[in-house]
């Protein structure tokens, strides 16, 4: 697999781990991975948003257990640190959806440096998702 595109829409801590883990696996094999963060997930690409990610809903009380499990697995427990590790592979690009950024408060002023920018969904879908060998939606 040469390339993979991922669209992430959920910003809860536990649900964002899976696409990041999949990206980490494939990137370390040399696959180019492009990830578009839409809807609430775009907040993960802001410094304050990434630090504020929590487990939502009925599993909210189990966050401590989940974070301990993440640490035991060998991953950083902070999402921003996971993003930094992925970026360090040199094979992962993070994009913020412009619509999501406008709605949920992510702009070029608070975008994390690991992000490649704020982009239109049409560009990502046509230039990345359509051209990728594989696409995933979370």
């Amino acid at each position: 697999m040469q390339s993979m595109a991922i669209v992430v829409r959920d910003d809860s801590y536990d649900k964002i781990l899976t696409p990041l883990a999949f990206a980490y696996l494939t990137a370390t094999e040399g696959t180019q991975v492009d990830i578009l963060f839409v809807n609430w997930a775009v907040k993960a690409l802001s410094v304050e948003g990434a630090a504020a990610l929590r487990i939502d809903g009925r599993h909210g009380a189990e966050e401590e257990m989940v974070r301990a499990g993440v640490a035991k697995a060998g991953l950083p427990t902070e999402i921003h640190d996971v993003i930094k590790a992925l970026k360090a592979t040199g094979s992962v690009n993070f994009y913020a959806c412009s619509l999501a950024g406008a709605i949920f408060g992510v702009n070029e002023g608070n975008l994390i440096p690991e992000a490649s920018g704020i982009v239109g969904a049409a560009w990502f879908l046509n230039e990345k998702a359509l051209k990728a060998d594989h696409c995933q939606y979370f």
Binding site: A21, F22, Y24, L25, T28, K72, A73, G74, L75
Partner: peptide, 10 residues
């Protein structure tokens, strides 16, 4: 002690 994805990453 480590779990997916770390064994494969490492």
């Amino acid at each position: 002690g480590k779990c997916c994805p770390m064994p494969m990453v490492e």
